[in-house]
Each structure stands twice: as C-alpha cells, then as structure tokens.
Amino acid sequence: MDHKIAFELIESYVFGTLDAAERAAVDAHLLTGCAECTARLRDVSELSVRLAQAVPQVEAPARTKERLFERVRSTHHPAKAVRSPQANRLRVAWGTAAVAAATAAFFVWQTTELRKQVSDTNRLLAATIADTSRLRTEISSYRAEVEKYKDAMMLGEPGVRFVSLAGLNPNPQAFGSVVTKPDKSAGMLYVYRFPMAPEGKEYQLWGLRDGLPPVSLGMFTVAPDGNAMLNMKTIPESTHIVGFAVTIEPKGGMPQPTGMMYVKGMDPMETGEG
C-alpha cells in the first residue's frame, strides 16, 4: 500500500473500522517500518485509550474470567518440570516402594488425563457433527442457487437475443434486460433498482406483440436491494413478441396491464435495428 493511503487510514486502523483487506494492507505497510506511519499509529493509539476511558465503566461478569481460564486450560499443556541435579540424586535414593507409589500415581494421573482427552474428543466430535450439519445446509442452499443460474447459463449459446429495458417515470433509474434463446422459446429477465412493491402488489412482465395485446410472461418480486430475476422456462406466443415491459399489478397478476409501467425495451432484431 502506498504510504500516503496508509497514513490516511491510520485513524480507522486504530479505531478498528477498516475492513479486513484494508487492515491487512495497512499492516503490511507498517511492517516495512515506515517511521511516519508508526509515529502516527502510536499517537492515535494513545488517543484511542483516552476515548475508551470515557465510556461508562462496568465490571465484567465473574463467569467471564472462569470461561477464559477453562478455555486457556483446555488448550494449554504446561511443559514438563525440569528437575535439578539435587532432585535427581534424591530420586536415585528412592526405594522400590516409592517408585511403585510414583508409578501408581502416574497411572492415576494418566487415567485422569485419558478421561479428560476422551471428554475433549467427545466435545470436539459434537462440534464437528454440528458443523457438518451446518455445512450440509449451506451446500444445499448453494445447489439451489446453482440450479437457479443453470438456465441462465444455457442462454450462453450462439444467437442468443438481448433486449435492454430502460427505466420510465416515476422510476427512471430502474433498468433491466431480457435474454432469450435464439428461437425465443425461453429466457431470463434481470431488473435492477426497482422499488419494493407495496403490500398486495407484484411486478408483472409482459411480452409486447405487434398489433396485438401484450401477453403475460410471469410475476416477480424484488429483493431488498432492488434487484430481481425471473426465469421464463417457456415464452408463450414467442414468435410474435417484439419487446418487453414490466408493470406493477395486483398480486397474482392481471390478464392485461393495468398499473404503472416501470421498464420497457424493444427487441432490435424485430424492430429492424439489430
């Protein structure tokens, strides 16, 4: 990362508001040993401490420390104690009984350790099973996504038709496109920047026919981000369709358009512009 950019991000780096990629980039820059950025980091860090001291101070619940140390002990295996030479000499002097007692103690300790390990393993197994179940759910939702886009990918064959849809008043920022197979037997609609439909209303896609009433091609709702996709597995009256339009209609759809039109576009292949 360029020094100037890194320097500008130091406050947010210390305040913790950078995203992971920006944070990593600032980290990498600081690792170069940049004196100016390091000095700024130190200054802002000390200010951050002062700002933190201004929040109401509330004691952490006692169980937080207990939980911390349970976690520490479940991961921490202290190193074996190193015996001094004097202890070694004393150890040689021990009698058989002492050795036997130590051996027994060792087995008791080992049994306890083994029990603890079994218990840890069981906990790990339970967590792994839970993770597996969660991953299965995720995989199945990804599969559903892939299925949704399969039809769209089929449209990648030569001769595919593309119709741009332009936004109309009162929502000119909306736009979209209809992509159909070369014979227009199936297709996909993509729209963007649509307002959420009011309660009891849905958007309806129409195939516009030359000299004939429009034909309904399906209903759809938009996601909170204003985008939507409609998969038209079959397009009725496809040979007569020369364009597409979207209107807002009562839920369930209407036989003919009654509501406000949001986007419209004509097929350039049919209007002689293509």
């Binding site: 130190r42 860090s45 951050s48 401490v49």
Partner: peptide
C-alpha cells in the same frame, strides 16, 4: 507501536 493498554484497546 504503543503501550500495552493501547494494544488492548485496538
């Protein structure tokens, strides 16, 4: 880069 408390704060 700063004091232990600054590190802890960040």
């Amino acid at each position: 880069r700063g004091s232990p408390l600054a590190w802890l704060t960040t």
